[in-house]
Write a protein that binds this DNA or RNA. Structure first.
Lengths: 152, 152
DNA sequence: CACTGTATGTCAGAATACTGACATGAGTCA
DNA sequence: TGACTCATGTCAGTATTCTGACATACAGTG
C-alpha cells in the first residue's frame, strides 16, 4: 500500500511505533508529574539515585540518557531544592557522589504513585505473558542498538 | 530487591525500558541522519507527508507527536529548503495542505536507506514472531495511553 | 441571522537539552 | 619522575521544543 519505494510504512515500522509509544508515555508521565511540579527527567534522576545511591553526575547522565551537562544543571537545581546532596569536596578524583535527601525520597515516593498509575494504565490491555514478552523484546532492542551507538 | 517501597524497579519497569529503547533509537537515528543534514523530526515529517499527502500543519503535528507550533517552524524551514510546498492561500478555512516536492521525495528516499539500516540493526536479535509481538504490544501501549491523554 | 464552540495558523517568550570547550584529577607507561 | 591519555565537572552559547496568547474560519444552535 504505502510501500511505494519511498519511506517506511508508518503502521508497521517498529521504529515509528516505538517512537510513538515513547512519546505517548512521556506525555502521560508529564501530565501526571506536572501537578507535583516535577519533570520526567527530574523523576528519572531521583529514581536512579534511589536505587543506586552515590552515582556521579556522569553516571546519572548515562543512566537517564541525557548529556552530562544537562544532568549537571538538573542536579544543581535538585540540590538547590534540597532533594539531593553532593559533597563540596570530591572524596576521590573529581567525582561527586550524589545522594537523595529525606525530602528527595519523599518527593520520589509521591511521584512514584503517579508514575505507577500511568504505567498500570499503559499495561492495562496486556496479559502477564505479553508484559514479560515486552520486557524481553525491549531489552533486546536496547542491546542491539547500544552495540554500535555508544562506541562510535 | 529494589522494591523497598520507594521507586519503580529500573530493570523491570516497562516504562523505563520503553524510554531507554526510545532514547537509544533516537540516538541511533540521529547519528544515521546527521551525515545527511537531517534531524529525526524532519525525517518523521517527510515520512508522514509521503504517505499521507496534503496533511495540514496540525495533523502533521499530531502524527509526529510534537506541538503545532514546533511543526510550524519545522514546516517553514522545510518549505524554505524546498522540500515541502504549501499553498499561499487556504483552499478552505485556514487549513494549508502540505505536500512533498520532488526534492523532498528525493531527500526522504536517501534518509529512508539510513533509517531502514538502523531499524534492521535494532531488530537483528528478534525473531519474526517476536517482531510481530512487538508491533502488537506497542500498538496496545499506544492505545492504552492515548485513551485519556489527548482528552484532558 | 447572530452567537457559541471548536479548530487552525501564527507570533512571542520560556524552558530544556545539546554541542563545544576548558581545567582538573587519576591511571598508565617509558 | 614526567608525559600522555582518559574521564569528570563545569561554563558558555546554540538549537529545539514547549506553553501562552491572539486572530481567524467553519459548524451547530437559538
Amino acid at each position: 500500500m504505502s510501500q511505494e519505494g519511498v519511506g517506511v510504512d508508518v503502521d508497521t515500522s517498529v521504529g515509528l511505533l516505538l517512537k510513538q509509544a515513547s512519546s505517548a508515555l512521556r506525555s502521560a508521565m508529564d501530565a501526571a508529574l506536572r501537578p507535583l511540579g516535577m519533570s520526567v527527567t527530574h523523576y528519572a534522576c531521583l529514581e536512579q539515585l534511589a536505587q543506586r545511591p552515590g552515582l556521579s553526575n556522569s553516571e546519572l547522565a548515562r543512566a537517564t540518557f541525557v548529556s552530562r551537562q544537562s544532568m549537571n544543571v538538573l542536579l544543581q537545581s535538585l540540590e538547590h531544592d534540597g532533594y539531593v546532596t553532593r559533597p563540596s569536596e570530591a572524596p576521590v578524583g573529581k567525582v561527586l557522589p550524589a545522594r537523595l535527601t529525606a525530602a528527595g525520597r519523599r518527593e520520589l515516593a509521591t511521584a512514584t504513585v503517579a508514575v505507577r498509575a500511568v504505567e498500570r494504565r499503559m499495561l492495562s490491555n496486556l496479559t502477564d505473558q505479553e508484559e514479560t514478552a515486552a520486557r524481553r523484546i525491549l531489552w533486546s532492542l536496547i542491546a542491539s542498538l547500544g552495540r554500535s551507538t555508544e562506541t562510535p
